[in-house]
Amino acid sequence: MAAGGDHGSPDSYRSPLASRYASPEMCFVFSDRYKFRTWRQLWLWLAEAEQTLGLPITDEQIQEMKSNLENIDFKMAAEEEKRLRHDVMAHVHTFGHCCPKAAGIIHLGATSCYVGDNTDLIILRNALDLLLPKLARVISRLADFAKERASLPTLGFTHFQPAQLTTVGKRCCLWIQDLCMDLQNLKRVRDDLRFRGVKGTTGTQASFLQLFEGDDHKVEQLDKMVTEKAGFKRAFIITGQTYTRKVDIEVLSVLASLGASVHKICTDIRLLANLKEMEEPFEKQQIGSSAMPYKRNPMRSERCCSLARHLMTLVMDPLQTASVQWFERTLDDSANRRICLAEAFLTADTILNTLQNISEGLVVYPKVIERRIRQELPFMATENIIMAMVKAGGSRQDCHEKIRVLSQQAASVVKQEGGDNDLIERIQVDAYFSPIHSQLDHLLDPSSFTGRASQQVQRFLEEEVYPLLKPYESVMKVKAELCL
């Protein structure tokens, strides 16, 4: 049975990233139509530049190519590739079939990587351009969430054990800070992308030097003109047959890092959902379990974690691919890159769409948070109580021993009897502590235990987050809708 299948058929496997999760716009960027249309555009740009620099290419040939950029006979191309065992030459023939007058000058002087690699770089750039505003929107939604809850005390956790208090907004800023680093890295790697350009079979530009009869300047002009037509500021000066596969490492490393950030955020949300302090959106008709109707599973956060793990592992592909590119190139890269580049971007696209949807509907339960604080705060307040007693004339050592005994009794009630923490009640009825009984409410005010959390939130948002989001103001209103 021949390899390949009808990918629109229910009898043929289709990647869930495309069929179930990723956005239509990201799927289109990695589609065959987008790819092969870009090949034709690159052939047109090459012909236009070659004509401008004096090669015998007519206006009629150029116009014929322009008129057929979208006229792609995919069936013919597939048949040609089956016959020739070469995808680029299959599309040269297919393009030439609908451009008979231009057929002889299509791909003039070029090698397969002229269309293959340059198209990949265009796709990487455009895919990054799709991700950047999506990530900015996630940051914006979380920034709104953090600002609104900047002063809401909550129990902090280290080692997932109760620690000092923080605020809900401050905790959210930990998430935002990681995503801001990801946004900066995505922008950097996007701006650092260079075009492969017009380089020939081993990167020496020998074929173009021959076409222009040894004119170095025209060869350099050709490279520059096509690079500018493709919208790049610069091209690699040095290439082998391909652009260095280190570029793929750079791009997928940034995406993998984004995956790590999203995994951490969504894990926190899942843990908070278990504590009943916070939940992701839950639709009115949504079913959490087929057997347990009360369940409210954090399905979206779980999906993000599941896909983020996949995204983090994909960076190993370009690392290994770059390491086995012998001399000017081997074909070890080809099949692998067809999979890992598309999957990385479709996965990143999915987790950003999902995280935006989550961040637009996060639900906080202040009463649950308050109750958990009441359970733990008495123990945390013991040092403040000791200091207040010393100020009232008591002995630190005597007070410490009193607190120690009462704390152990209260802990026994919590752990052995399943009761509430009654340390404060014990202190309130103990005559030894009568000098500070009137101060206990103040000493137990949760806001006095959150330090500068709310001020940190305000400063972080104003100095770091809002300036970073400013270039994306025009796209901030787009909502994230999930079908599944």
Score class of each variant (00 low, 15 high):
G5F: 11
D6H: 00
S9V: 13
Y13Q: 09
S15L: 14
P16I: 14
P16A: 10
Y21V: 00
A22H: 09
A22M: 13
S31A: 08
R33Y: 09
W45H: 11
Q61M: 12
Q61R: 04
I62C: 09
Q63A: 09
K66E: 10
I72C: 08
E81M: 01
V88G: 05
V92F: 07
H93V: 13
C99Y: 01
P100D: 10
A102K: 00
C113F: 03
N118R: 00
T119N: 06
R125M: 11
A127K: 07
A127C: 07
A127N: 04
D129P: 02
L132A: 13
P133K: 14
I139R: 02
L142G: 02
A143W: 05
E148V: 11
P153Q: 03
G156N: 00
F160V: 01
T167W: 00
T167P: 04
V168S: 05
C172N: 04
L174C: 11
I176N: 05
I176D: 02
L179Q: 04
M181N: 08
K187E: 08
K187S: 12
R188P: 01
L193A: 10
R194V: 04
R194D: 03
T202F: 02
A206L: 08
F212H: 02
D215I: 06
H217V: 13
Q221K: 12
T227H: 12
A230C: 08
F236N: 05
I238G: 07
G240A: 10
G240D: 01
Q241K: 02
V247W: 11
L252R: 03
I265Y: 14
G288D: 04
S290W: 03
A291T: 03
P293A: 15
N297Y: 01
C304A: 14
S306A: 09
L311V: 08
L311K: 01
M312C: 11
T313Q: 09
W326Q: 07
F327H: 07
E328R: 03
L331N: 08
R337C: 05
R338C: 05
L341I: 13
A344D: 03
I351R: 04
N353Q: 12
G361R: 14
L362I: 12
P366Y: 03
P366K: 08
K367W: 06
E370F: 12
Q375T: 04
F379W: 07
E383V: 02
K391Q: 15
G393P: 02
G393W: 05
G394L: 13
Q397T: 06
C399L: 05
H400L: 03
V405L: 15
S407P: 00
Q409L: 12
A410E: 02
V414M: 10
K415D: 07
L423F: 15
P435G: 07
P446R: 04
T450C: 10
T450M: 05
S454C: 12
Q456W: 02
V457E: 03
E462V: 14
E463A: 10
E464V: 07
L468W: 09
L468H: 06
P471L: 15
E473P: 15
L482W: 05
C483M: 13
